[in-house]
């Protein structure tokens, strides 16, 4: 691919004898915002460290901008990394933290000054140039860390769990901030996260990983609306996933005879896709929760527990009531192993 800025081929990553990522292929286009998403231990952080050059792959290649950098040391790759812990230099003030890499490049003092000032401005920290990292809030430290990487004009900017250390409000600010910076600078960003809502909100494309393998790649709406596997569906909020064998659905508690047959391994329903109030099966309501626009029910059924929701305006059921429900094929979702 000629337009891919980052290309991983047959990458095998291992710590000593423990293989974390057996065989990974991935292409990232210039200017993309990519999320490496997965539960902890899925190899996403390891992959990021390999791209940065902080660990050497056991086999396979890494190309940046068409050039093979597999054996190139980290300090020559021109890649920025915003660490989860920010990794700011505590003995330097904000200005000097941002100037650190520029000074190593031996740029003229006036050039350094203008680049640092512009960098601090980009992240809204121009007024705190003389502060030490310890005198800044978590959000400010994160933006400083971002500025420190951005002034180096990296070909690729890697971000490790960029929102996980921030509280809910700052998280929203930072999300907007990252998207704005990405638009303004056009830098290719690859970020690692375990939070699907972060990936959905921020990324152009999501790479869902499991046990070192790519489970599915796609746009947020593709992954959310058309997960291919049980794992992907689980990750993106399908709460009712049942194995299908013959014309029976199989759950934790038992099985349920249905009127249809499908050529798939699993069938899944989002809570809103479950019909409540009418249908061919009986379920006992064991939980009711009001969630604003809709009401969530937990039903005890032959399959085990099912989560369903219906618009708040509809008729309400009470805990203990036995009601009719249905798992229609039309609103179900076929999944493959």
């Amino acid at each position: 691919m000629s337009n891919s800025i980052l290309s991983l081929k047959k990458l095998n990553l291992a710590y000593n004898k423990t293989v974390v990522v057996p065989d990974l292929d991935l292409d990232v286009r210039e200017g993309e915002l990519i999320a490496l998403l997965g539960p902890s231990g899925c190899g996403k952080t390891t992959t990021m460290r390999a791209i940065a050059g902080l660990m050497a792959p056991h086999s396979g290649t890494i190309h940046i901008d068409g050039k093979d950098v597999t054996r190139m040391p980290a300090n020559k790759r021109g890649i920025g990394l915003v660490f989860q812990s920010y990794a700011l230099f505590p003995h330097l003030n904000a200005f000097e933290n941002v100037a650190f890499g520029l000074r190593l490049k031996k740029l003229a003092e006036t050039e350094i000054k203008s680049k640092v000032e512009h960098g601090l401005q980009t992240v809204g920290l121009a007024h705190l140039a003389t502060r030490k990292p310890a005198e800044m809030s978590g959000g400010q430290q994160q933006r400083l860390s971002l500025a420190r990487s951005l002034v180096m004009e990296p070909k690729i900017l890697l971000l490790d769990e960029p929102l996980s250390n921030l509280d809910a409000r700052l998280r929203l600010d930072m999300r907007t901030e990252l998207q704005r910076v990405q638009r303004e600078t056009g830098v290719t960003m690859v970020f690692v996260t375990h939070d699907q809502s972060e990936a959905l909100a921020l990324a152009d494309r999501i790479v869902l990983m499991k046990d070192g393998l790519i489970e599915q790649i796609g746009t947020p709406s593709e992954l959310y609306n058309r997960p291919r596997t049980k794992f992907a569906a689980d990750f993106f909020g399908f709460e009712n996933i049942f194995k299908i064998s013959g014309n029976a659905l199989v759950g934790d508690a038992g099985s349920l005879q249905v009127s249809y047959q499908v050529d798939a391994e699993y069938l899944a329903w989002r809570p809103s896709a479950v019909t409540v109030g009418n249908g061919s099966y009986n379920g006992k309501i064991v939980g009711v929760a009001f969630a604003g626009e809709h009401i969530e029910y937990v039903l005890e059924t032959l399959l085990g527990q099912i989560t369903a929701s219906s618009p708040a305006a509809e008729r309400k059921f009470k805990v203990g009531e036995t009601i009719k429900f249905d798992l229609p094929l039309a609103s179900g979702f076929a999944l493959y192993p």
Binding site: N75, F100, L104
Partner: peptide, 25 residues
Amino acid sequence: SDMEEAAVLLGCSRVGAFIRVVLPN
């Protein structure tokens, strides 16, 4: 130790990172 890795990614050698980042701290 991620502070040293940050220094390396900003262009330092390992020894340079030790002198510029570890020693002052």
